[in-house]
Amino acid sequence: MSLAAAEAPPAPRRRWLRLPGREARRGLALVSPTFLYALMLLAAPLTLVVLISFWTQDYLTLDRTFTLANYRTVWLDPQESPLYRLLMGRSLAISGLVTVATVLLAYPIAYFVAFHVERNKALWLFLITIPFWTSYLLRVFLWKVILGYNGVLNSALMGMGFIDQPLTFLLYNANAVVITLAHAWAPFAILPIYVALSKIDRSLLEAAEDLGDGPLRRFWRVTLPLSMPGVIAAALIVFIPTVGDYVTPRLVGGTDGLMIANMIQVQFGKANNAPLGAALSVSAMLIVAAISLLFLWLNRRFSRGGA
């Protein structure tokens, strides 16, 4: 080795040129099968859906010229768009209601398990999750049985003499959809809130009490703010998937309770108009993503200002 080479200063390493280290390479190699699977069967399909939404279909042949026609049909067309907009709006409204109801109903139970169950926490969590593991289709169907004209609820109320005629506002409308979905998504709301609550350092609550807060003020000023991450997670976990729910509106929604997913299914199925279905899907996803981001942003602003 020549002296000049030995004394040459080492080339300055650039950050963006630096190759990943041994550990990083191992990690990347290990995650790559799963990542590739997700790329091929999630990213690529989603991309294709977006592409197709800009194409048109005539029976079985796809016309691949770029067009906004599908989006015009969904949002502007005087004949068709009112229906799509109605379904979209109703999906969002129902999902919003379901989210609020589920989170409000779930919070006390999460609070109960986190703070007042001493020994059997695991048992309670297990009990809460069991119904989630029974057939989704049958659970939804059984709500139809409960809420129906000759259903369990009506029979019981009539049997006890509270009503003379069966109540008809229970089934085949948006109410039924909200109740059924609030039931189906309960564990997904309870668990994140429970995790957030159980992470709260108990001495913080004692400190609040020590500094003069009663139970309500302490809850409002310490417990609730500290559990907000769980509430946010619960809200998003419930809101995003329920917008696209198909089974529940079909079974218990009647015609007044149908949602956007039912229309998407029709476009891909009977109507044989995949591009329009794709445009509906993309529109729904964009709206949901926008609402979720807005929600996260508002929460961040709120919690920063509040703390």
Partner: peptide
Amino acid sequence: LPLVLPEIIVAVALLVV
């Protein structure tokens, strides 16, 4: 992501591809 994605979107996307 599939944990929060509506299942119908996953289904439609896979069907299309």
